[in-house]
Computed example of a mutant assay.
Amino acid sequence: MSLFRKIFGSSSETSNSEKDKEQKSPYTPEVNLPVDEMFTHHFQKNGGKFIYCENLEEVSENFLNILEENDWFECNVLCYEPALNHLIEENKLGIVKNTDEANFFFSTCESLIADDGSILFSSNQLKHNKPNELPINMVVFATTSQLVPNKGDGMRHMNKKYNREYPTNITTIKFFEEAKEEDFLHYGSCHKNLYLLLLEDL
């Protein structure tokens, strides 16, 4: 995933393709963007907070930074996935199953959808909860191998992954900040203050 290293690495060189983009008209449509670049652009445009991690040690460090930034120490976390418990326990957070008692929701996801910057979830992460029933604050742990071009590819990925034991409650969350004015695109949607911890695994 060279894009993430380009954005978050120490190199300050500007590539020829970036120079070409600057010279293009703003009305020229972007074509054939890499999936990682497309997702990053749309996700941040939607208000998501993106944190790229090269290894699991950086995941732990950045999770701690999120707790510090929001003063979430010694608070309650809504989490349904035992695989994430080590991060919760090493930071002395309480795990709850009731959405009303949680300061934030911590989970994985099914896929990261590049063409609109949304995140695809299922009952494996959310159980029976609808997005508007979850805490407004969310931390999502995902990997670069979960990036897919669109929702159709996300559904195909789930079909292949689960085969017969297909999950329910499949939904996406797309808006990560409150709309500043009335916008029909936000109608019926809930916004989340969402941090994405993205681990490089390719």
Rank of each mutant, 00 (worst) to 15 (best):
M1L: 15
F4C: 14
K6T: 13
G9W: 05
S11E: 13
S15W: 02
Q23L: 07
K24T: 08
T28V: 10
D36N: 05
M38V: 01
H41A: 09
H42V: 00
Q44W: 00
F50M: 01
F50L: 05
Y52A: 05
Y52K: 04
N55E: 03
N55V: 10
L56N: 12
E57R: 09
E58W: 03
E61W: 04
N62R: 01
F63H: 03
I66L: 04
E68N: 11
E69T: 06
E74A: 13
C75F: 13
N76W: 08
H86L: 15
L87H: 11
E90T: 12
K92Q: 14
D100Q: 15
A102T: 06
N103F: 10
F104I: 07
C109I: 06
S111K: 06
A114G: 03
A114M: 05
G117I: 03
I119K: 01
L120S: 01
N124I: 02
K127A: 09
H128S: 13
N129Q: 14
K130H: 11
E133H: 02
V139F: 00
V140F: 02
A142I: 02
Q146C: 08
G152L: 13
K160Y: 12
K160C: 09
Y162K: 07
N169V: 10
I173N: 04
K174H: 04
E178K: 13
K180P: 13
D183Y: 03
Y187K: 11
S189T: 06
N193L: 06
